[in-house]
Every structure is written in structure tokens, then in C-alpha cells.
Simulated assay, not measured.
Amino acid sequence: MYHATTGTAVVIVMLVTPLLMTLIMLLVWHCHWILVLIFIGLSLAVECTYISAVLFKVDQGGWVPLVIAAAFLVIMYVWHYGTVKRYEFEMHSKVSMAWILGLGPSLGLVRVPGIGLVYTELASGVPHIFSHFITNLPAIRSVVVFVCVKYLPVYMVSEEERFLVERMGPKNFHMFRCVARYGYKDLHKKRCRNSQENCH
């Protein structure tokens, strides 16, 4: 059973590798489509031989990695679906700046000293949760920073381009947006401490 389980996992990985290599040839190296077809044909010819041999071992334990992979696939799909739906909700329910301006410089609340951080997925506009704060809290910080963390499809983002800070509304509102950008190899903590000096 052990050999059947590991054999199925290894063959699946071997099948995924040339498929990903095909994407690199097309999108990164910009190879001619004929060369890509030749590569796919040779790769699949070899891989299909291995797969046909492994299929006979599925009932002897080879089903284990398939079940595990299916479980992780379902989890990742549900997580992705929930993330997309949450972002769509924030996009459709965000508050207009005209409504914020109508509240006045104090935003209709008592402004107490300090910096209030509001996390949001939006890189533009005012999130709906902020209107919830205004209608349910008796006071709010004198400086409000909307923090948005974005992951870019790049290796690393330089420190000079890490944080994008912009003012929201008039100067006396003391409202800012901080967009923190990270690459897939960046080590980070989800905070905007390094740019808080720009928010005064």
C-alpha cells in the first residue's frame, strides 16, 4: 500500500510539472506554439505511460493521496470563493466620500487623541464598516488610517515602494489611506507602523 500511495503522488506531481512548464514557455519565454506543442506531446507520451501503470494501483492504496488532494482542493475553493464574495460585498457597499464630507470635520463624533487603524480590502473608497463605527461609537480617534494589504505577483517590493500613503478628504478631517504592498517572498507584519509619521 505504501508504494501504491507514494507512486500515485509522485506521478501526479510529474504530470503537473510539464503543464506548469508549458505556461512558462508561453507566458514568460514566449516560445513558438509549435515548440510548445512538441514539448507537450513528448511530455504527455511519457507521463501517460506512468499514469496508466499507476491506475492499476489505485484500489491498493493509491486512492489515499487522491482523497487528500480532493479535500485540500475543496478547502482552497471555499476559501477563495469566500474571499471573492467578501471583496465584492465591500465594493458594492462602500461609503461615498460625499456622505463623509456631509458629516463635517469631526465626522459627527468626538475626536479623541490617537491614531485609529481600520483594516479594509479596498484600495479606494471608504469601507462600509467605517459607517458602522460612526453610527455606533460615541468617539473616534483624531487620526483615522484605512490600512489595505495587497499581495503582488512579484518576487519582492522595495522598501521605497512598500507603503503608499494618501490623504482622504480635506486636511482638517485627518483621514488617510495606507496601502501596504508585498511580494510573495517578502517577510512582513500586517501593520503600517513605518508610515505613521506621514499621517500627521
Rank of each mutant, 00 (worst) to 15 (best):
H32P: 02
V118M: 10
S43N: 09
T120C: 04
V67N: 03
Y151R: 07
E197Q: 11
I12L: 15
W79N: 13
V13M: 12
P18W: 04
G7V: 01
E166A: 04
V13Q: 10
M76A: 15
I134W: 07
G169A: 01
N172W: 00
V165K: 04
M97F: 10
M21I: 04
M175C: 06
H188G: 02
T6H: 01
L109D: 06
H80Y: 08
P113G: 09
R111S: 10
A69F: 14
L66V: 13
L23D: 01
G125T: 14
Q60W: 05
V149P: 05
L187C: 01
V10H: 06
F130E: 06
H188E: 05
H32V: 09
W33M: 13
P113W: 09
M14I: 08
L109A: 11
A69K: 04
H32S: 12
K150I: 15
L107G: 05
A45H: 12
M97W: 02
L20G: 14
G183S: 01
H132A: 06
A123P: 01
D59I: 08
D59T: 13
V64K: 06
C199M: 15
S131Y: 05
T6A: 02
L109W: 04
L26G: 01
L26D: 12
A180S: 12
N198L: 15
D186C: 04
F72V: 02
I38M: 10
L107Y: 07
V179W: 00
T17E: 03
Y81P: 00
E88D: 15
I68T: 11
V179M: 03
L101C: 07
M1Y: 08
P170W: 10
A53Y: 13
Y77R: 05
R111V: 05
G104Q: 07
C178K: 00
H132G: 02
V46P: 02
A53T: 08
I100R: 02
V28W: 09
T135A: 14
V28G: 03
M175N: 04
A139M: 10
P170K: 09
L66A: 03
W79Q: 14
E160A: 11
P127H: 09
V154S: 01
Y155I: 09
F39G: 06
H92L: 12
V64Y: 07
K150Q: 15
I12C: 12
L42A: 14
K85N: 12
P105A: 14
C192H: 03
Y119C: 03
I12V: 14
V36S: 01
V118G: 06
S158Q: 03
F72W: 13
R167W: 07
N194F: 04
V74H: 07
L19D: 01
T17G: 02
E47Q: 14
C148D: 03
L66C: 12
S142T: 06
V154K: 00
L103V: 04
H92V: 14
F176W: 13
N194I: 06
V157Y: 01
G114R: 09
L137V: 00
G169W: 05
L37F: 10
L55Y: 11
Y2C: 00
I40L: 14
A9W: 06
A123K: 13
R193M: 03
N172M: 05
V95W: 12
V118H: 00
G7F: 00
